[in-house]
Nucleic acid binder design. Structure first.
Ligand SMILES: [Mn+2]
Ligand SMILES: [Mn+2]
Ligand SMILES: [Zn+2]
Ligand SMILES: [Zn+2]
Lengths: 141, 141
DNA sequence: TAAACAAATGAGAATCTTTTGCATTGTTGT
DNA sequence: ACAACAATGCAAAAGATTCTCATTTGTTTA
């Protein structure tokens, strides 16, 4: 149960946290959600959770290491549940579609660059922007 | 003169635009500046330009293709004059130091990934975060 | 070079996203 | 069930950026 999971990561099993976890786990909505997205999803499920709590809980989940925060272009932060494996993103600037990829060569080069400049790398973010196949098809029409 | 340059790119040569251009060109301050940084630099030079104008002008310069806007972590946008060659950034999360690099292998892989997923790539952003050598030295002390 | 007109500016209000303060409510171990 | 303390909701605050609008400035024209 989710409440067990929350306790395991050191968080009290409160209703808001359980509900937010459910929203994020159910791939029902997109895998990549903003705080506002999560908040709206909660309202649709009839849950009465404050937006401030959504922000607080997402930040706690991030600190607990169970989700990752991304900074896609366009203002707000986007969150996604972690499933262990790191990946980067390629997104369509027309329709918002998001695809995920992992490229060992790029990962390796990044580390080499950090070394070369004398940094101990702690993190990195790579976003590729473009127009997806579907959107190009529509444009031609 | 800067006013000629501004006209060349299709912008009226106004005092605020000329002054902002000077600030950005004089590597005096860091190469990577936020709107607020530019605004403060103007004030220090005794220029009386509104912050709203700084934002407007930076956006216009971006659209005119003479500078690039970056989204480093930590909220505000950062701008830098273009000098033709594209590059990515590695930055220290302790002291804010920024280094620039260009890696043909990474660039190439990115294009390959976009192709593989059926996107026509329009842009990409890569930031490597870490602790620079100087900051690691201080930490040990 | 002065009038004429459109474009640009400055100041502050407005917006948008995220954070914070605080009184109230909920969770947990006993 | 209860005390102890953490979490929540709401509204206010904060930080970054954009917008509104009256006023000023740059450029063109006569
Ligand atoms: Mn993802
Ligand atoms: Mn740069
Ligand atoms: Zn698309
Ligand atoms: Zn440093």
């Amino acid at each position: 149960m989710d409440s067990q999971f929350l306790k395991k990561v050191g968080l009290k099993a409160t209703l808001p946290r359980i509900k937010i976890l459910e929203i994020l786990e159910s791939g029902g909505t997109a895998r990549h959600m903003s705080a506002e997205d999560v908040y709206k999803a909660l309202l649709e499920h009839g849950e009465d959770v404050g937006l401030a709590t959504v922000y607080r809980v997402l930040t706690q989940f991030e600190q607990a290491g169970i989700l990752t925060r991304h900074h896609f272009e366009g203002g707000q932060s986007v969150f996604e549940m972690d499933e262990g494996r790191h990946h980067d993103h390629i997104l369509c600037t027309k329709c918002g579609r998001v695809d995920e990829f992992f490229d060992p060569t790029i990962e390796e080069r990044q580390k080499a660059i950090a070394d070369k400049f004398g940094y101990s790398m702690t993190d990195h973010s790579l976003y590729i922007y473009g127009i997806c196949k579907d959107c190009r098809k529509k444009e031609k029409a």
